[in-house]
Design a binder for these strands. Structure first.
Lengths: 214, 214
DNA sequence: GTCTATAAGCCGATAGAC
DNA sequence: GTCTATCGGCTTATAGAC
């Protein structure tokens, strides 16, 4: 059973995600969050103590999905399968958690002032692991020698853009919201650029072990 | 000769770019801008009337370079040349105007509340022209049928990420600042993904006219 | 646990001296 | 044209009734 407490916290978190994504931390008023949640403002402080705390909880909610998106790199698989799964995961996050994604992007853009050292470390460790994987594929001759750092930056950017710059995408495409087929086209375009760009041919040999980066 | 007026306006604009890029519009204090410019706060208001006005001028300063970056699409050229030049222009903007780039990105992320209808129209018209070009290349069999919208979104994202998410890039690469060779590697990676991804072979035939999109 | 009513402080903006 | 000194509004946060 969900208590009133849990329900209200959830309502506030959801409202806060949208407001912070729309306006940014500083420009967001706690009174607007309360209004959007349908609760009086002091409730926000009662449950979350401060505006900054609330913001940090929203931020935290995207860290786990973001780390989980790298799962394909932690399992055995051919580069074409791993990268395809990774790109699809990242696109799915942009689509399913657009508000938290934007909050995260905004946080990073401003130098990650609210991100804890632990969170930074986790995200970084995963990034380095992924880069190590890509490098090992290059060393094994499974793909062309494309700089793993820049390849990863391009994948991040291209997939996140569907959440972060949705306004631009709506304006250019003329669609208020992208539908299933749009997201499918986006994923296929990025997958194509990456696989062909890295000269990765469809899984020809079996890769039995996930890569172990130092 | 540069008057004191011009010099001071320039100092304030430069300081404002950095502050707005670092903290965002709402979180930036005009007193901090004044301090960074080495001038008393009322000077900021004397020259720019309001914080919002000052912000709009910073924003405007990036529009022209952004439109100019699309120049390769307005001249005749083989897809491989046009796209290579375009990607290099976009990367150059990220490198040379990192603050204004970030301000623009932040503006777009929050739904472009300060962008004028005219600016939106110009940027959109250029985007549509570029998309029309790419489509015509596909129709002429000069490249594989990669969705022009999504291709462009990927190029924008991959090139802008070097300005917008510089913190992340510094953290992952372990370098406080990227140097010439890093930017060169970035450009080459993106160019490679795009050209190979679209199956564009190096200029084989001469293209004598720029494309005319409707 | 919930909400009304209020305090406290910050920051954009300016009046007015020089 | 320039700057000191100050106002006024707005927003976070809370005290205290229910």
């Amino acid at each position: 059973m969900t208590s009133i407490r849990e329900r209200n916290k959830e309502l506030i978190l959801r409202a806060a995600s949208e407001e912070f994504a729309d306006k940014g931390f500083a420009a967001t008023k706690t009174s607007d969050i309360a209004a959007k949640a349908g609760l009086p403002k002091p409730n926000v402080y009662y449950y979350f103590k401060s505006k900054e705390n609330l913001y940090r909880e929203v931020l935290e909610s995207i860290i786990e999905p973001l780390l989980a998106a790298s799962a394909p790199f932690n399992q055995p698989g051919h580069p074409s399968e791993v990268l395809t799964a990774y790109i699809r995961s990242k696109i799915r996050i942009s689509r399913e958690l657009p508000h938290a994604s934007k909050v995260f992007a905004s946080e990073i853009m401003h130098g990650a002032p609210h991100l804890s050292a632990e969170q930074t470390k986790q995200l970084n460790a995963q990034a380095r692991h992924n880069i190590g994987c890509i490098q090992s594929w290059i060393d094994q001759g499974l793909m062309a020698p494309v700089d793993p750092h820049h390849l990863l930056f391009s994948i991040w950017a291209a997939t996140q853009t569907y959440a972060d710059f949705d306004w631009q995408i709506s304006t250019v495409t003329g669609k208020a919201r992208l539908d299933d087929s749009d997201y499918e086209a986006a994923a296929q375009t990025i997958i194509r650029l990456v696989l062909k760009g890295c000269e990765i041919s469809p899984a020809a040999m079996t890769v039995k072990e996930p890569c172990h980066s130092l």
